[in-house]
């Protein structure tokens, strides 16, 4: 192969190698290979000596031209690499920015999740968990809880009755309007001392709205022993509230009325949204306090209904709404979101 042919071959090879170069260090190497003092082109100059004299200028010109072509090509490739490093993905390049394989997990419903969280706190305090039926009788839902059938105290417990229920000696069948009937069922079967919580569904014929739904969840608490006092009720609830809402949360007890507890209390916490300042707060409506549960000392009449000696034993009971807790915890503003079951909602928990 004569020198001119070799120059042609070298040109093709060099241009291809340069255009395939993926980084500046490779271009540097090619530059050294072709253009340095010990490079390939220098070798061609050495071969010129063997040529007839009339060809020497021609060959010199051709080698110089090739040198210029390679130099230009290297410069051009440097620009390409600098401008768009992503445009070429040669083998060996590892793109850590690509996403991982898609793996999906499911979710727990925020209400059930909150119910478990709340229950777990009481379990850690030494309470047991019990359940009761959702279809109840008038006896358990009302009578045994000292709620007379035709009395205004029942107004707070508007109730769904079953349409084709036969009336038994425990009264008509209904959907329980609170978890308190389970108190009675537990005490009928168990002797004190006992401390138990009852999570479950309850039903009231409310028109659905942002804060009302005809089905919701409560957790009922009950503790009975000798010398269980109102101070103890405050003690338990104070521990619970600080555990669930945070240690800075304040609690206050207000007198209230429930037929099955005496004394009765409504329990407020300092607003978890505004920190209790009430300042233009939409959640506590500027009051700084949020009503979160009802509580009290078990009424002696309830003990009578289950044949407990109300002189010997005293106890407290409390009930809280799980949806309300979940709404406060997750800043949810409409109770209806819970039963809509939109995945875009559920996936957030």
């Amino acid at each position: 192969m004569n020198l001119f042919d070799q120059l042609d071959t070298t040109e093709n090879q060099a241009l291809e190698e340069i255009s395939r170069a993926t980084g500046p260090e490779i271009l540097q190497q090619l530059e050294t290979n072709y253009l340095s003092r010990k490079g390939i082109l220098r070798g061609f100059f050495g071969q010129m000596a063997a040529l007839p004299d009339e060809q020497k200028p021609q060959a010199g010109e051709a080698i110089n031209r090739l040198k210029k072509v390679i130099e230009e090509k290297i410069t051009e490739q440097r620009k390409i690499l600098a401008a768009a490093p992503q445009t070429r993905l040669p083998e060996g390049f590892f793109d850590i920015s690509l996403p991982g394989f898609e793996k999906v997990t499911g979710s727990f419903h925020p209400v059930y999740r909150t119910m478990q969280e709340l229950s777990a706190i009481f379990v850690r305090l030494g309470f047991n968990i019990a359940y009761g039926p959702e279809i109840e009788t008038e006896f358990y839902n009302f009578t045994a809880l000292n709620i007379p059938l035709d009395h205004p105290s029942r107004d707070a417990f508007d109730t769904f009755y079953l349409s084709d229920s036969s009336v038994s000696n425990t009264g008509r069948l209904l959907l329980r309007s609170h978890t308190s009937p389970v108190q009675v069922r537990i005490m009928e079967k168990t002797k004190p001392p006992l401390q138990v919580i009852v999570p479950g569904k309850v039903f009231r014929p409310d028109t659905p709205g942002p804060s009302r739904f005809p089905m919701f969840h409560q957790i009922e608490g009950l503790m009975v022993d000798e010398n269980v006092s109102f101070a103890n009720l405050k003690g338990i609830l104070s521990l619970f509230i600080r555990e669930f809402f945070g240690s800075e949360t304040r609690m206050r007890f207000r007198p209230s009325f429930f037929p099955f507890t005496e004394p009765s209390a409504e329990v407020d916490i300092s607003c978890v949204i505004c920190g209790g300042t009430g300042d233009r707060c939409p959640v506590c409506r500027g009051e700084g306090w949020l009503e979160i549960l009802g509580a009290g000392m078990v009424h002696p009449k309830v003990f009578e209904a289950v044949n407990y000696d109300s002189e010997k034993y005293t106890g407290f009971a409390f009930g809280l709404g799980v949806e309300r807790m979940a709404m406060l915890k997750y800043s949810i503003n409409d109770i209806r979101l819970f039963t809509e079951n939109h995945l875009k909602f559920l996936e957030q928990f």
Partner: peptide, 30 residues
């Protein structure tokens, strides 16, 4: 009943005047 009078006493005195005392629970595994 007596319990109603006790509530009246607590109510008028103020629930905030009653101490906050966690109860004693006898340990057992259920």
């Amino acid at each position: 009943a007596e319990i109603d009078l006790i509530e009246e006493i607590a109510r008028i005195r103020g629930y905030e005047q009653i101490p906050t005392t966690p109860p004693v629970i006898n340990l057992k595994v259920e």
